[in-house]
Design a protein around this nucleic acid. Structure first.
Lengths: 245, 245
DNA sequence: CAGTGGTCTAGACCACGCC
DNA sequence: GCGTGGTCTAGACCACTGG
């Protein structure tokens, strides 16, 4: 560890949090890749010159943050953005009757544009910065449209976006594999709105139908915003699920 | 501890989880009251014949569950349903501009009735069981109505409910203080709906206005459902906030 | 079987609140 | 100064996985 391991009179930070920070840095700079097996707790303890218990506390925090996944006897891996995890962590729309499942997507548009004031603010870039906008419709098992969503990405962080042949269903895996961007968390704001004529056409409902609007800001591991997403959802046969503990 | 502290070939349960269970039981049966200072970790360790570290792990879990609140130097208390905590844990509607704050309430009706099929199912009672229904309007700082909500309670668990002179703003504190019922968690389902003529009249909006409908089931410490609540919310100047980690 | 994470213990010291 | 929770250590043993 560094020499200021010992607490100081002002601004004390526990060792295990410093360790967590330094390990998160390995995720940010890519020295630990998603899916990779990280060194054992004993190895890390030796490497960092601290006890196994302290390493464990740091890993505990990171497991709680869904950054790592441990399995007894096997080891600890960097969490991957695979379907089932994304589904559970980020997709909270579930059918009223039936299991939650990953929605299919059909892309409507993909455009390069200049960020609106709200977009620039949300993405923490200057107004007028280049962005990509993707609009797509998503459906569950049945082919009936469930929602229409607009994704806004800062072009600066997604170079050569235009080279993409197709946009996959699971974009968080795309971000990870193509640009090394890991989505670590998100914040959502929900409102009830009326379906516009355009929404109604795409979703196959009457204009004015109440829709659930989900405005998400997704953050990378450094807590910087990297994606804005507005979803307008039919909630006649599905609902947004939240568990409060 | 009991004699089966040692792991058995089948169905191993760590000691600290057994400890947690036995401590939660003290909350359920009321031997530890909300707000009360519980014995120190060392005392509990002596009492249970285990190490302080194991007690600590059990308390860690309970702190994460919002059942206990510890402060260094002061001790550990049973969590209370005071405004700020309820606000943060259970009330996710926040103004688009401004701080979140506790909404005021005005009761419209209070009736004894028979549970509908859906209510009986949600409350895990037999159909036709007696319930109380409370309907109220809630507002934020400005006097403008924000939402109208219907609370359904199983009469069996709230004896002498009719004796209540008034229904306070913070009902979870009422449940705790009057009937010893602690709300430990809840599950919410959100949909977008249209304001009925009645909703519109009460909320002061046009009929057909899109409303955010929040259907909550609240659970006690034993995970049994004790309250159903349906809120229909105006989201023109407020939104439902969810953080995904 | 060796190696991993998970549990449990015992003890030291630190930061904090209160008297 | 004392007692509290919070951190850190060192070491033992257990449960699980894979070769």
């Amino acid at each position: 560890m560094t020499e200021d391991t010992k607490p100081r009179a002002f601004g004390f930070r526990p060792l295990y949090l410093q360790v967590r920070e330094s390990l998160v840095r390995r995720l940010i700079d890519g020295s630990w890749q998603p899916g990779q097996l990280i060194p054992s707790e004993m190895e890390l303890a030796r490497e960092l010159g601290i006890s196994q218990g302290t390493v464990r506390k740091a890993l505990d925090v990171m497991r709680a943050e869904n950054l790592l996944i441990s399995r007894q006897g096997r080891g600890t891996r960097v969490a991957e953005p695979e379907e089932s995890r994304i589904l559970f962590q980020f997709f909270h729309l579930v059918p009223d009757n039936g299991e939650r499942s990953f929605p299919n997507s059909r892309v409507l548009h993909r455009d390069r544009a200049r960020a609106s004031k709200a977009e620039a603010e949300g993405l923490n870039t200057e107004a007028g910065a280049e962005v990509w906008r993707i609009e797509r419709v998503r459906t569950l098992e049945d082919a009936k449209p469930l929602l229409i969503e607009t994704i806004t990405l800062p072009a600066a962080r997604f170079p050569e976006f235009e080279a993409l042949a197709a946009i996959p269903n699971n974009v968080y895996r795309l971000y990870s594999q193509t640009w090394g961007i890991t989505i670590g968390g998100a914040s959502e704001a929900l409102k009830a709105i009326s379906a516009s004529a355009e929404d109604a056409r795409v979703l196959g409902c009457a204009p004015g139908t109440p829709l659930l609007e989900i405005s998400r800001t997704a953050f990378d591991l450094a807590q910087a915003p990297v994606e804005l997403r507005v979803s307008r959802c039919l909630t006649e046969q599905a609902h947004y699920r939240a568990d409060l503990r």
